[in-house]
């Protein structure tokens, strides 16, 4: 025992110290956890309950239990909106992955000291104003916008193209806004990957594309899936991009929830739709976690 160490008599007993430590940790966490409980868990609980209540006569809420809100969500009108949302969100996810994967790969293969900076440059727009990033595309795509004027200038088009207020514009806006997230998720899994496996494969004479398809891609699939889940769910629940770049002509699940709360005043139905969105997100995250587990097991088997 070092002479500097205080005698056991002066130190709190191990049991008492641990209990005091736990108490102190609880006291430190209490205000923050209390806030999250009061302003996140309880409000989400209220939405859950609202989803099973009836709409009142004048837009209020009648505390009568019903599953009507959910059966209503299965009506063809709403199923059509869900299908359109899923198609647009799916397309945005696919494009974001196709752009994001090679970008993440290029960063992961850059010299180590430059990787943080390169990744930060991708993430920087993600932390800035969503509305302005979306507005930037209105500036580029409108009939008098830079793209139309540029194409007219070099004589490629006679009349301006309708680039704005359609599915193309909405998908572009979603990809633009969520791409940084995809790059981050894929980069993280490339970073964790054991690159010696790829080197071994190359040493054994496998062509580069084959090493990629058999080793790199399967090992980074959890990152791809994580990025995909977030882009998909955030796109489906988005109402700003369809409103601004779709010109109000394209309704997605997010717009539907927005309308129930701010225009139609049918809160129970809106709550049910929000609940379905969260449910879809949890299911997809669960599937992603299962994929991570499987990848982990296969990694050990190799």
């Amino acid at each position: 025992m070092s002479p500097l160490r205080p005698s056991p008599r002066l130190r709190p007993s191990p049991g008492g110290g641990a209990a005091r430590g736990r108490l102190r940790s609880l006291a430190l966490m209490a205000p923050g956890l209390g806030w999250l409980t009061a302003f996140m868990l309880v409000p989400c609980g209220i939405v859950f309950v609202f989803a099973f209540y009836q709409r009142g006569l004048y837009g209020g809420i009648d505390p009568v239990l019903t599953t009507e809100n959910f059966t209503r969500a299965a009506e063809p009108l709403y199923l059509g909106i869900f299908a359109l949302s899923a198609r647009i969100a799916g397309l945005a996810t696919l494009v974001a992955l196709l752009i994001g994967y090679p970008a993440a790969y290029a960063i992961a293969r850059a010299p180590a000291r430059r990787q943080t900076g390169l990744l930060f440059l991708v993430m920087l727009p993600f932390w800035s104003n969503y509305l302005i990033r979306t507005y930037a595309w209105i500036v580029l795509l409108n009939r008098e916008g830079l793209i139309n004027r540029g194409l007219a200038e070099i004589g490629l088009i006679e009349a301006p193209l309708s680039l704005l207020y359609n599915e193309f514009a909405v998908v572009t806006g979603l990809v633009y806004n969520y791409l940084p997230f995809v790059v981050l998720a894929i980069y993280a899994s490339l970073q964790r990957m054991d690159w010696s496996l790829v080197e071994a494969s190359a040493d054994l004479g496998a062509p580069a594309w084959r090493s990629f398809a058999r080793i790199t891609l399967p090992l980074t699939l959890p990152g791809v899936a994580a990025g995909a889940v977030f882009v998909f769910v955030l796109s489906v629940g988005n109402f700003i991009t369809p409103e601004l770049l779709g010109g109000g002509r394209i309704q997605m699940a997010g717009n539907l929830i927005y309308d129930q709360f701010l225009t139609a005043r049918d809160w129970p139905f809106g709550a049910a739709l929000a609940l379905l969105l969260i449910l879809a997100m949890m299911l997809l995250l669960f599937a992603q976690a299962a994929l991570v587990n499987r990848a982990g097991r296969e990694g050990r088997d190799v």
């Binding site: 996140m40 989400c44 609202f50 769910v233 955030l234 929830i257 709360f261 929000a274």
Partner: peptide, 16 residues
């Protein structure tokens, strides 16, 4: 709070 879609937290807080 970091991953919950904004619209869901927004309507939850409005209801609350």
């Amino acid at each position: 709070p970091m991953i919950i879609p904004d619209i869901v937290l927004a309507i939850a807080l409005l209801s609350f």
